[in-house]
Design a protein around this nucleic acid. Structure first.
Lengths: 254, 254
DNA sequence: CTTGACCTTAACGTAACGTAAATGTTTATA
DNA sequence: TATAAACATTTACGTTACGTTAAGGTCAAG
């Protein structure tokens, strides 16, 4: 089967412009060019386009897609996982936005017309909140309570499906962690997998991720007895083991 | 108080480039230019920048912001409401994305490596689903059941807060609608407000909105006795009144 | 008088195409 | 077979909100 831009485009549901653009950036080149200069695509190109569209569907950028499908050694899983984090972060931001728009609308409806000062105050509050999230570690060292408070906030905008997913993640993490502890090596593959799962869980809980906060939080699990009790309930030392695994995972300690 | 780009930028947390760009596109011009060609901003400009940043915070584009703050007659509420719809739609899309990435990751973990065919099949399914949403009216005329089925699907990715909001919206809509019915005029302000509220509710339920589907759905409320019973339980004729109001609201009927 | 901090304009880069514009090729039909 | 419709090509500007040089003036301090 051979296709021109039009036929292939129709088949796959993309524009001819898209196919020419893909040719231009080298992500999908036609099998050959015929005597009239037309692009001719074959089976292999159809398959490749399907792959491209698949990843595009996931919101991956074309450059990254190229890397994924061109390099067989490429770690697609890591790439997808990082991408997932970006998406979760984006979603969290969107939810804050939606909330703010609704609040604005509500205040208008109630004729409580916010003053510009109040609007700006709200704006600054958000900036501060973002900063606090970025530099959460330092802040948490001083205000441990507040950090917990904030993390609870993240739950407000979480869907039921998200919540279920989080619980699943935690269950699996604890399972893997328990198994890892039998070996006793926080640098081992199982312990590292547990750290990775914990990272995913954390990303959901905070709508964001950074290594320092991750390492800091697991340290808190050890320092704060309420957390320690929770993690150590099945097996004493679990919180400390998780902290060690995460410190290695995040590169905070070798 | 007078500010140069640097001072104002620091105060408001934006870059000097941003201020120059705002000057360039005419959304924020300095109060005056001094003898050295420097931009000098005053109190009024600080206020205006705060307004700009406020709307930007809501994700509104600069062009729209300009329209909002320049034209005192501009209907900011409608603009915000439309913007909210866009955001909700975006969020729904994002959730589908996140789900797909997770599924992909899950299938990789389980070594069930999806074949390209399967991937593409999933991709097509989504395209079809999108089409069905776009041309939902025709489809629903033939498959009323399926439409309901699909709308139920939208709930899957809805957060608890969203759900609560939806219920609130419906309660308010019914309240306004009941009040509007005492006048008996589906073109009156109250009836039109009810239609607007119903639109907002619908946008949440479907993650998307279009007039045809809106009008079609309210017609369905009248045609399908299960819906009619639901809407008419307090007051007979409510479903028909809502349909009339929405047909006028959407411009499907004068 | 120099240094450094600040200011200016100009202009390219970004992501992924949409949309002409100008023009050549293939196919269907009268 | 002539011609129109459908399809192909390349080129290049537009989109959004700035970031980032580049090349060069201004101003206060030491």
């Amino acid at each position: 089967m051979e296709y021109t831009v039009h036929k292939l485009g129709k088949m796959a549901g993309v524009s001819t412009r898209t196919l020419r653009y893909y040719d231009e950036i080298g992500i999908l080149k036609p099998a050959r060019i015929n005597s009239s200069g037309y692009r001719i695509y074959g089976r292999a190109e159809v398959d490749r386009l399907q792959q491209i569209l698949f990843y595009k569907e996931l919101g991956v950028g074309l450059e990254d897609i190229k890397a994924i499908i061109d390099d067989p050694a490429f770690d697609a899983e890591t790439a997808l996982r990082e991408h997932l984090e970006k998406l979760l972060h984006k979603k969290a931001q969107l939810e804050i936005l939606i909330d703010n728009v609704r609040k604005t609308l509500a205040s208008r409806e109630g004729r409580i017309t916010m003053s510009d000062q109040e609007k700006f105050a709200g704006f600054k509050e958000k900036l501060i909140a973002e900063n606090e999230q970025k530099y959460g570690k330092e802040a948490r060292e001083k205000y441990g309570e507040e950090a917990v408070e904030r993390s609870n906030q993240a739950f407000k905008n979480m869907s039921q499906a998200d919540y279920a997913k989080m619980q699943e993640l935690e269950v699996e993490m604890r399972k893997v962690l328990a198994e890892a502890m039998t070996s006793g090596d926080p640098a081992g593959p199982l312990a590292q997998k547990a750290a990775a799962l914990h990272k995913e869980w954390l990303t959901m809980a905070w709508g964001q991720y950074n290594k320092e906060a991750h390492a800091g939080l697991t340290q808190l699990y050890v320092d704060d007895e309420r957390f320690t009790a929770y993690y150590d309930r099945e097996q004493p030392g679990t919180a400390a083991f998780l902290r060690d695994a995460v410190q290695i995972y995040t590169g905070m300690k070798k």
